[in-house]
């Protein structure tokens, strides 16, 4: 019997990702992991690619993980869990194991969008029964804030530094959620820790679906985003409310927006509090704000159209009774 997704019930549940890790104060990643594991009512085995989460959650004789956890290299969390999951299926077939175990990979955006993309794509295509979770903080934060292909347009990072030559990152971020959806996997979703109910429901749903699943979860990083250390959830919420990070799922090719903001806020509400976008508010960079907003608008508009494609048809008007001759 699954634990009801209420704060009261969840607060009684054992946390499988414990406090005491060495992630920065205010980091979004541990909150994401905690929610994912709290939503999981099965025994779970995780692989974790190199990154902030890996390096800070298991230091010397301490670990924050109360589950079997394997740190792969940077580029192959999905391949590593593929091996574990395949052997599990084999052992199950041989009757040597009977437990229903869930397999999860955790990786940051660098380990997902860039160096780990090949490994992830391979695992999705082979069809392993696993859930790959990207905690997306939009840059290589572990090595000191370098751009990744998840870094939003305009952001200032150490490898796309704002200066005389460029005004921050000039490319738009890669749309990883839809790229994985295009692999034809049964379930992908975009989530945010600010909408914990939505996030946990999606984790639950993923676990109940057989085959490869992908969850892309925004995880604000106050160091890289240059925000306050107590506003990760606030920033995640603004990302959703401005439609920078729409919450949606694609199940068997059918797109559904799971949380529609009551009022779509202007993107600057999300950009303004972040130091990495400060230069975009200079008068000469007005075009950047416009370009960023246009990109978000176009994405949202398209998402709505995609959803509408699959919406149940409006009830047809009652057919006029045939008049007998």
């Amino acid at each position: 019997m699954a634990t009801p997704l209420t704060l009261k019930e969840l607060s009684r549940k054992e946390e499988l990702f414990t406090p005491g890790h060495r992630l920065c104060a205010g980091c979004g990643a541990p909150t994401v992991v905690k929610m994912v594991l709290l939503a999981t009512d099965y025994p779970v085995i995780a692989s974790n690619s190199t990154g902030c989460l890996e390096v800070s959650s298991c230091i010397s004789e301490y670990t924050a993980w109360k589950i079997p956890w394997i740190h792969s290299a940077f580029e192959n969390a999905a391949a590593t869990i593929s091996g574990v999951e395949t052997m599990y299926r084999s052992l199950k077939k041989q009757g040597k194991i009977s437990d229903e175990i869930k397999f999860v990979s955790f990786a940051g955006d660098g380990g997902t969008y860039d160096i780990g993309f090949q490994s992830l794509s391979g695992a999705m295509e082979r069809g392993h029964d696993m859930t790959y979770i990207c905690y997306d903080n939009g840059a290589y934060m572990n090595t000191g804030i370098q751009r990744s292909s998840a870094t939003p347009f305009g952001a200032d990072t150490t490898t796309c530094p704002v200066g005389s030559h460029i005004p921050g990152k000039l490319q738009q971020r890669k749309d990883m959620t839809k790229i994985i959806a295009q692999h034809g996997v049964p379930y992908v979703a975009q989530c945010s820790p600010s909408h914990w109910g939505d996030l946990m429901k999606k984790v639950r749903k993923a676990h109940e679906i057989k085959g490869p699943k992908f969850l892309n979860i925004i995880a604000p990083c106050n160091r890289g985003w240059r925000t306050q250390s107590d506003d990760a959830i606030k920033m995640a919420k603004l990302a959703v409310e401005t439609c920078y990070w729409p919450l949606f799922e694609i199940e068997n090719g059918v797109t559904k927006i799971t949380q529609r903001p009551r009022e779509k806020k202007p993107l600057i509400d999300f950009l303004k509090p972040q130091g990495r976008f400060k230069h975009m508010f200079a008068p000469e960079n007005e075009w950047m704000l416009k370009a960023a907003q246009e990109h978000v608008d176009a994405y949202w508009e398209r998402l709505e159209k995609e959803e509408a494609c699959f919406a149940p048809p409006a009830p047809a008007a009652a057919e006029a009774p045939k008049v007998a001759d």
Partner: peptide
Amino acid sequence: PITPSTEITELLAERLPK
């Protein structure tokens, strides 16, 4: 980026285009 060589990449990101 990779520790402990990242500074080379970061510094050249800034200086090489100039």
